[in-house]
């Protein structure tokens, strides 16, 4: 096969994000490719979720252009977008009365008929996803019976069942202990490798993201550097992320240290 660089799945051209009366972040640029795990990191309240919502077309960018497979995001209809981008938000499903299977099956909606009946193909996909995420035992449980970590895996399974080239996740590791954090991130990494999907997630787990991600976007109000973790460290992008008299970045160990 050709060795040419694969086409970008999602890219941002100098976008500004925010709300009507308030620009949150300006001049965001990035390009992500198939099979990549990409983290959007930054300090609390910088606008990570706003960016993710903008990428999911839940709100519009204030300026600039987002390209999905080299076509502007604005030109996709809601229906067309449903088979391109799936999301996992911080809010869990509104109804906790759904069973795990029912919730994952809802991911097939873009492909089902007018009344939402599942075809054999849909069911095969759902079973595949359930096996992949090892949810067989939870299949018939209701969502309100699950732990946070299990529910997060179910929400990821739903996004996978939607079978889109891009999966966007907002803070997939909050409320989880370190073991479950790593478990979820490694799971995402494997999904990206095995399925060729592009996975973009927001996180304030900068150290873990440095170890696992292919590319990172460090969101800051004025300039948001984007690149491979090593490149960003070499450029010193993390050094002034937090006030240095409190927390400083150690490039050697790739960790943050409390300044004593």
């Amino acid at each position: 096969m050709s060795k040419a660089k694969p086409h970008t799945t999602l890219s941002a051209k100098n976008i500004s994000i925010g709300y009507k009366d308030k620009v949150v972040v300006q001049h965001i640029n990035f390009e992500v490719y198939p099979s990549e795990l990409v983290a959007i990191v930054g300090i609390n309240g910088v606008g990570k979720s706003t960016l993710l919502r903008t990428l999911a077309n839940l709100q519009r960018p204030l300026a600039g252009e987002i390209l999905l497979k080299s076509k502007s995001l604005e030109h996709y209809t809601t229906t067309a977008l449903a088979s391109e981008i799936s999301i996992v938000l911080t809010e869990p499903s509104a109804s906790k009365n759904l069973t795990v299977y029912e919730l994952i099956a809802l991911g097939r909606q873009p492909y089902t008929n007018w009344i939402g009946s599942l075809s054999e193909e849909d069911e095969a996909k759902i079973t595949e996803v359930i096996t992949m995420l090892q949810l067989e035992e939870l299949k018939h449980q209701k969502c309100f019976e699950l732990s946070d970590g299990q529910l997060q895996r179910v929400m990821i399974a739903r996004a996978l069942a939607q079978d889109t080239d891009i999966i966007l996740l907002d803070e997939p590791t909050t409320h989880l202990d370190i073991y479950h954090k790593v478990q979820i991130l490694k799971l995402l990494k494997n999904i990206a490798r095995e399925t060729g999907k592009t996975i973009v997630f927001t996180s304030h787990e900068i150290e873990m993201s440095l170890q696992l991600c292919d590319q990172m976007l460090l969101l800051k109000p004025t300039s948001s550097p984007f690149g491979k973790p090593k490149e960003l460290i070499a450029k010193g992008s993390f050094n002034d992320l937090f006030p240095r008299d409190t927390v400083s970045f150690d490039a050697q160990t790739e960790t943050f240290r409390i300044t004593k």
Binding site: A56, L58, T79, L81, A82, L106, G107, P110, Q162
Partner: peptide
């Protein structure tokens, strides 16, 4: 049942 944002991402107008 998933909430409005999820519904929209599933193609619901």
């Amino acid at each position: 049942l998933l909430g409005e944002n999820y519904a929209k991402s599933l193609g619901v107008q």
